[in-house]
């Protein structure tokens, strides 16, 4: 396993993972074999920015305009790190 990558990694969905909107439930979803990740609330907005070009720092910067900046700075990196540990992002 790699070490914790901090805020300069460029998150992107891991191979074989599909991100899609679920019109039935109104949430964005991450799909992989045997698993569904439901991105409730603003989680969908965060993951949408994970396209492999933006660093975690970039993502925090973009979201800071839209959500309370202090909250974004602490919660978004932790959230992305958790998704990485669970194998959704890399």
């Amino acid at each position: 396993m790699s070490t914790a990558p901090g805020t300069d990694w460029r998150p992107t969905p891991a191979p074989s993972i599909v991100r899609r909107h679920d019109p039935v439930r109104g949430d964005d979803l991450l799909l992989r074999p045997e698993r569904v990740g439901v991105l409730t609330g603003s989680a969908g907005v965060v993951v949408e920015l994970c396209d492999g070009t933006r660093t975690v720092g970039d993502i925090v910067g973009e979201l800071a305009g839209r959500f309370p900046a202090a909250l974004v700075a602490t919660e978004v990196p932790a959230f992305l790190e958790r998704l990485r540990e669970e194998g959704w992002l890399r």
Partner: peptide, 10 residues
């Protein structure tokens, strides 16, 4: 088609 409409994702 119907399954997708119903909410099936897998």
């Amino acid at each position: 088609r119907q399954a997708g409409e119903l909410g099936v994702v897998h």
